[in-house]
């Protein structure tokens, strides 16, 4: 009996392996080998549209493979081809590149290679770039150099970073504005909120990426997801498929960039913003605590795009990820923008 049970289990495993989910069947999947890193690229959605939205994920150290889990990007894939890829040391990237020269320039170079590869493989399609969070900063750095922006019909900056020191200050203001209310809230964890005040007193000028505490504080203030339960309902995670029938593995959870991100602390791509002249949609969650909406005002002000071709949209009841928190509004805004400028 025990032997039969084990054989049945063995058959179930093999059968399970034969069932392929959308993660293993949809779109094109290839790798870019650049400077020691092997970057996975997933082109998914409506390739026949001839319009490609190249995403640049956040972090540093997150993954582009998270975008297609959100409802907002699922909607976009119906209309356009969306390019998801993982940066070096991040997500499902592989290889063991040299760690002695981690610089923003290296990430910009990777972005450039991904764009070149997409243009080559798909016959120079209509391109838009969408950067989220750190990806907003990286895409600004890329677009604002060497006239890269001229390869694109438009830029979508989704709660994107731009200037580390400034953001750390804006984030501090955003957090400290809300802490008194939390301290007075009945049943709140007063010791925690007092700790937040004490921490900022001891660290009046935190670094942008190296100091992780402000990100925890922002999270505790729902600065990442406006309403976590609602976001989960809107974007159910297909755990079974992800674990048993997708490209994901445990290696996905290991980022090579978690220990030292000081190379990204003092980045300021404001000069690059002054070189970007293409149509731009700046899409921000009003309740974003990681890259507060005031950063959107700063980007709008410094972007060289003519006023008629740039717009800043702040979304109500939305934090750091509009594609998760408000997928319909995210989709509507992006489609309006792409249809106008494609």
């Amino acid at each position: 009996m025990k032997t039969h049970s084990l054989l049945l289990l063995l058959c179930a495993l093999i059968f399970g392996a034969c069932n392929k989910s959308e993660f293993l069947t949809e779109g094109d999947y290839f790798h870019l080998d650049h400077n020691g890193a092997k970057l996975p690229v997933w082109v998914k959605g409506n390739v026949d549209s001839g319009v490609f939205i190249i995403t640049v994920h956040g972090g540093p150290g997150d993954s582009g493979h998270e975008f297609p889990l959100s409802k907002g990007f699922k909607y976009l894939e119906e209309d356009y081809a969306v390019v998801y890829w993982d940066q070096r040391f991040s997500g499902l990237s592989q290889g063991d590149p040299d760690d002695s020269n981690i610089t923003p320039e290296l990430f910009i170079e990777d972005t450039e290679k991904v764009v070149e590869l997409i243009r080559h493989r798909y016959g120079d399609p209509t391109l838009f770039m969408l950067g989220h969070s750190w990806g907003g900063q990286l895409s600004a750095g890329y677009l604002g150099r060497d006239d890269h922006d001229q390869l694109f019909n438009g830029w979508i900056d989704l709660d994107g970073s731009i200037y580390g020191a400034l953001e750390a200050q804006i984030m501090k203001d955003w957090i400290l504005e809300q802490v008194p209310g939390k301290l007075n809230e009945e049943g709140s964890d007063k010791a925690f909120w007092q700790f937040v005040l004490d921490w900022y007193e001891a660290h009046p000028a935190p670094d942008n990426y190296t100091d992780q505490e402000p990100y925890f504080f922002a999270d505790a203030l729902d600065g990442y997801a406006y309403d976590w339960e609602r976001t989960q309902e809107l974007n159910p995670v297909p755990y079974h498929e992800l674990i048993f029938s997708s490209m994901f593995s445990l290696a996905y959870y290991v980022s090579g960039l978690t220990t030292d991100q000081s190379w990204a602390d003092d980045l300021n791509f404001t000069p690059e913003l002054a070189q970007i002249t293409i149509p731009s949609l700046l899409l921000w969650g009003k309740n974003d605590g990681a890259v507060p909406a005031a950063v959107g005002d700063y980007v709008y002000e410094h972007l060289a795009t003519p006023i008629a071709d740039k717009r800043l949209v702040k979304i109500d009841e939305c934090s750091h990820a509009p594609h998760y928190d408000q997928p319909e509004i995210f989709y509507q805004q992006v489609v309006e923008f792409v249809e106008q400028y494609q």
């Binding site: 790798h31 870019l32 080998d33 092997k38 290679k113």
Partner: peptide, 27 residues
């Protein structure tokens, strides 16, 4: 020894923008 698995292959992009096939082998 790991090899990259993607049905559309591995690519390298040169300094001049030329695209060529790359190796599937990691170290």
């Amino acid at each position: 020894q790991t090899m990259l698995n993607g049905e559309d292959g591995v690519f390298e992009v040169g300094e001049d923008g030329t695209v060529r096939r790359g190796s599937v082998f990691n170290q």
